[in-house]
Write a protein that binds this DNA or RNA. Structure first.
Lengths: 229, 229
DNA sequence: TGACTATTCAAGCATCCCGTTGAATACTTG
DNA sequence: CAAGTATTCAACGGGATGCTTGAATAGTCA
């Protein structure tokens, strides 16, 4: 079983490519990548949001880091992880897109979930986007406020889902509301719309998150950064 | 450890995404995908070209197929595998591109290999591409002829590496020659250039393969298809 | 029909990988 | 310096994965 230099070269090259493949071969890591696409975060926050233990999150993050998909920087007592660059975000987006078009199960699972919740998917996406871009509706960003600060759709109001109930008064009562969150597989906007409708608002969910918005080449707004060391 | 419906939904979605990740997490499968990017092929041909056993190739192909990245169709006694659609090709391309920019090892390994072979990487890529597009040089496609038929760079001559020595007479002696093969990590063009230079030709290697060519939005030429059942 | 071929299947083995647990490390704050 | 917190490390068990081998299947061709 002696291998030629050519063979060894190829083995090494594809082994390198496979490092990236391995990094995105575990569901948990994909969820972490998706979360990091919304902005940098500490290990603890990621663990909490992905519903896994801190040690487990730490391990996954180290694997992602070994594949150079994310970077860690020490911020005092915390370690802040972030996507290594936007190419990583685009890659994740491509993977997701491929899954959506090629794996029928993705649509099945989504449909089943929406049905179970009794949430209807009204209004065709592009039509909704048009109205959002045109400023014809009140746009609500229901993610945690750090994520809003890291980047949001221009003109959107930051009202985290957890605060929505208390802050309903801030919304103009007779204007249509469109809520969005992290993307098509994040459920916060669904919750928000449900709540808004119960309160008599005309509300819709926008599937697109900030990453999808950016992927269309549209402008994303950032809040003034807090001071960083 | 009861999980909410939201959690279960997310688990299922990311599990789907991970199906694609798992499919591209093994070096061998990436090599097979790369090969299939050059055109459809039988199991045996793939096994041979990837340097693995037929049974092993078959298994990998079935995993790729389960992830819907490739499709199989029975052609008489053979089974012909092909990429499921061009989005798959683009995805592979994105993965490779990410590996190239983020994993320094890719360049290291390549450089080491070229050095070992004593092959120099002359002529800057874009300059070479310009001359190829302008028809200023003789362009040689040194891949097996089926791959040439499945798609090649306009104006290229099909001279498989294995036949090159015999067919040197076909080449105009005092015109520069540019050889290409499957892409930057395929070594056939390197061999070709080595041989051509020994024979006194002014020859260069073009790194780009047909997929890279197409990715730039440039036209790819196809030979008239043989009859298919 | 029978010989032959290409592909797939099934079983087995060594290895790797995920998630858990409990302890160790590194930094901040009083 | 001591107490507290965030993160990482180390070890382990169950399960998946990759490759090999040998047999089974499904098609072709004389």
């Amino acid at each position: 079983m002696t291998s030629t230099p050519n063979r060894r070269f190829k083995d090494r090259i594809y082994e390198q490519f496979a490092r990236l493949g391995k990094a995105v071969s575990a569901p948990r890591r994909l969820e972490l990548l998706d979360l990091l696409g919304q902005g940098p975060r500490t290990v603890e926050a990621l663990a909490e949001q992905a519903g896994i233990s801190v040690a487990n999150a730490s391990q996954h993050l180290q694997i992602l880091r070994a594949a150079r998909l994310v970077e860690a920087r020490k911020q005092g007592c915390y370690v802040e992880y972030r996507l290594a660059d936007e190419q990583v975000g685009r890659f994740f987006h491509a993977l997701r897109g491929l899954a959506e078009t090629r794996l029928a199960e993705v649509e099945q699972v989504t449909r089943a979930y929406l049905e179970e919740r009794g949430a209807m998917e009204a209004v065709h996406g592009t039509e909704l986007l048009r109205r959002v871009r045109g400023g014809e509706v009140t746009v609500l960003d229901v993610r945690p406020s750090e994520e809003y600060r890291a980047g949001h759709i221009p003109g959107a109001l930051s009202v985290p889902l957890s605060e929505l109930k208390k802050r309903l008064a801030e919304l103009p009562k007779n204007r249509e509301v469109v809520a969005y969150c992290r993307g098509p597989y994040c459920v916060m906007a669904i919750d928000a719309v449900e709540l808004l409708r119960k309160q008599g608002f005309k509300a819709h969910r926008m599937e697109q998150g900030v990453a999808d918005w950016r992927a269309r080449g549209w402008r994303v707004e950032t809040s003034a950064e807090e001071v960083r060391s």
